[in-house]
Design a protein around this nucleic acid. Structure first.
Length: 678
DNA sequence: GTAGGGTTAG
């Protein structure tokens, strides 16, 4: 995650990587810099709402219903439009277009059948060979996920214009049948139709939309890229942006950035694609930096709702609360806060930055605009803060409000139950999801149940869930079981889970570390060594622990202290002093999972250098008495750090909020909100 | 008459 900040390693203190949001050296204090940049935000408002679709100029016969049908379609009154259609002897091409678009846009179970009805009528009226309408029909069927129907329309259209070809290519890409697009492209060229820039965009998207042949994607993308270069399509901003995005989606972030830097005519979409790429690839810091750069470009490229969603995600993943609040201010000024995906990303951002209450207020402010994603965001927010009962109540409110839950709702809900230890409730929801809500349990849901039962100490029940699964247990499920084994020191079961995990995801270092933890906890040092050797042989490295803390609008990141450094010494000295006092109060260092066969004292020394403790000590020294210390960690919080933080919250009389990779821990007065159950 | 970036979980 910190690859970006570490590019500054040579300029920074070896242990404290400053994480300013604008990491130039010799920079002014951040407070001023923020102000300076934020006050220079473009003040103009974008052409807020797109102009209404122009009225079609085709002139139907006087007295016909065509205009009225088209108008009803635009208003979304499809049923009424269809009733009029039945009475209309001469529907025009424009009328059918309006009807098809209206069906495609319609949200509701009846949309496909209405679409088929329109299609039938169109055939009856002799429009089945109209390539314009074929294109629209292909798009419509694609929207319904009915690729076979889209293909049939395509096959039956004799006059295959480039629009018709592109529509089917697009449909295949969207339907994750991208591999089918390649033979189709060859057929198209053989039939004498040359690809245009739309074709390139569709084909490139098809490369990432072929999950079964994803390994082929990089080669295919490079081939298309070369082809597009030879034919002069890369300077087109749409093609270049698609290239940027697909390189990002196959994980080639450096190349995506190359594309971005080489684009002479970047627009909002190009900027958003690049920021989004960083936000989703653990380069949130670079994403925020790019956003700041974007604010300095000409106003016609000012950030829009899509840009803001990605930027909010970047803030959320860093837990950069102050930055997030400034983004919120910017959204309000630009009136972007009323756009639902932005609202939803804002709810999630506040929850992930530790301000659940602010997220809840945003949710409340959304009133009637809420959708299922807003509810999911709030439920998961309650979950990650350990408020299981609030999550359950929110779910019930959602059902009462008539919002249909999705698979994600249940991931969030079951996760919330897991964090709060609500075993019985979770079991009931698990049964009810399929029975009452028609949501088929997926691997993630089983993983939640395994995790939940495992944490509750019901390891055998957790294993039974895995055995009884109706689908093949994937790495998430086995991983959850392995996590449970670590908590309960179940060596044999851990070995069984790892046997599968090492086959399923041989390069995931985390699994090896968990297994080593289990062995270390059981004192099986020979086995610990064996796991370490296996990791070495496979060239895997444990993801280094990293914690960061925001102090006075600036981020400070810490990795584990392994070598003497002036600041680390200062922090370690403070920790030593605290630990000595804590020991008198009954603190016993938890050295079970130190993966070195060392003496007690050396193990304790290693524990003391954990990144979270350094961040904690730094926060204690550098913040005022009443301030909450907010720490974020890239891994799960270790048992010893957890118990030390509890002590410190009491000793120093401070509230400490720690976000680990799974959830929040709210420490106050010697206790943690997780109830030692995480 | 087509298109490129996005919301929640893991």
């Amino acid at each position: 995650m910190w690859a970006s900040c570490c590019t500054h390693r040579h300029h920074c203190h070896p242990l404290v990587h400053h994480l300013p949001f604008f990491p130039t050296h010799h920079e002014p204090p951040h407070f001023f810099l923020f102000h300076c940049v934020y006050s220079s935000f473009p003040r103009h408002h974008h052409a807020a709402a797109a102009a209404a679709a122009p009225l079609h100029s085709a002139a139907p016969a006087v007295g016909s219903n065509n205009h009225l049908i088209q108008s009803l379609c635009r208003q979304g009154n499809l049923k009424q439009a269809l009733r009029l259609l039945a009475k209309e002897p001469n529907p025009t091409q424009r009328t059918f277009e309006a009807l098809i678009l209206s069906c495609a846009r319609r949200r509701g179970d009846d949309a496909p059948s209405l679409g088929v009805a329109v299609h039938r009528r169109l055939v009856d009226d002799g429009f089945d060979q109209d390539p314009f309408l074929s294109t629209k029909l292909i798009d419509m069927y694609s929207e319904f996920g009915a690729v076979a129907d889209a293909r049939q329309v395509f096959e039956e259209t004799c006059d295959k214009t480039i629009f018709v070809w592109n529509a089917l290519l697009r449909a295949l890409a969207v339907a994750d049948e991208g591999e089918e697009a390649f033979p189709l492209l060859r057929k198209m060229v053989a039939a004498g139709t040359l690809p245009d820039s739309f074709t390139y965009s569709c084909m490139l998207k098809a490369c990432v939309g072929m999950s079964s042949h994803l390994a082929l994607a990089p080669t295919r993308i490079r081939e298309l890229h070369a082809h597009a270069l030879r034919h002069g399509f890369v300077p087109r901003v749409h093609v270049a942006t698609t290239l940027l995005d697909v390189y990002a989606k196959i994980g080639d972030i450096a190349y995506a950035r190359n594309m971005f830097d080489d684009m002479p005519n970047k627009n909002v979409v190009s900027w958003s694609a690049m920021i989004g790429c960083y936000a989703r690839n653990e380069r949130a810091f670079d994403g925020l930096r790019l956003f700041q750069e974007m604010l300095l470009v000409p106003a016609e490229n000012a950030p829009n709702a899509v840009t803001m969603v990605s930027t909010l995600q970047a803030c959320a993943s860093l837990a950069a609360l102050e930055q997030g609040r400034m983004l919120h201010g910017y959204l309000l000024r630009r009136r972007l806060d009323v756009i639902l995906p932005v609202t939803n990303a804002l709810i999630a951002m506040y929850a992930k930055c530790g301000r659940l209450e602010a997220g809840r207020r945003v949710f409340a402010g959304a009133g009637g605009r809420r959708d299922v994603v807003s509810w999911n965001s709030l439920i998961s927010g309650y979950g990650m803060h350990g408020h299981g009962e609030d999550a359950v109540c929110t779910f019930e409110d959602m059902i009462a409000a008539g919002v249909r839950p999705t698979a994600i709702t249940f991931v969030a809900l079951l996760g919330a139950c897991s964090h709060a230890g609500l075993v019985h409730a979770a079991q009931q929801f698990f049964v009810s999801m399929g029975r009452d809500h028609a949501v088929v349990p997926r691997a993630e849901h089983y993983a939640c149940m395994v995790d939940l039962l495992g944490r509750a100490g019901r390891l055998e029940d957790a294993a039974a869930v895995v055995e009884g699964m109706r689908i093949e247990p994937g790495p998430t499920v086995w991983g959850a079981l392995l996590g449970a084994c670590r908590i309960h020191g179940a060596v044999e079961l851990a070995e069984r889970a790892c046997k599968r995990l090492f086959e399923l995801e041989p390069s995931n270092a985390g699994n090896y570390v968990l297994l080593a933890d289990v062995y270390a906890g059981a004192g099986m040092w020979g086995e610990v060594g064996r796991v370490k050797k296996l990791m070495e042989a496979r060239e895997l490295q444990k993801l280094p622990g990293c914690s960061w803390v925001e102090v006075r609008r600036r981020m400070y990141a810490f990795t584990a202290a392994e070598e003497a450094a002036p600041l680390a010494e200062q922090l370690l000295a403070l920790l030593c002093k605290l630990v000595a006092e804590m020991k008198e109060e009954g603190y016993v260092p938890d050295t079970r999972f130190v993966l070195y066969d060392l003496g007690q004292e050396e193990k304790e020394r290693i524990l003391l250098g954990h990144s979270e403790k350094l961040a904690l000590a730094f926060g204690l020294i550098n913040s005022g008495a009443g301030e909450v210390i907010r720490i974020t960690k890239n891994l799960r919080l270790c048992e010893d750090c957890h118990s030390v933080t509890k002590f410190v919250s009491k000793f120093a009389n401070r509230e400490i909020l720690v976000r680990d990779v799974n959830r929040f821990h709210h420490f106050r007065d010697g206790r943690c909100s997780c109830g030692d159950y995480w």
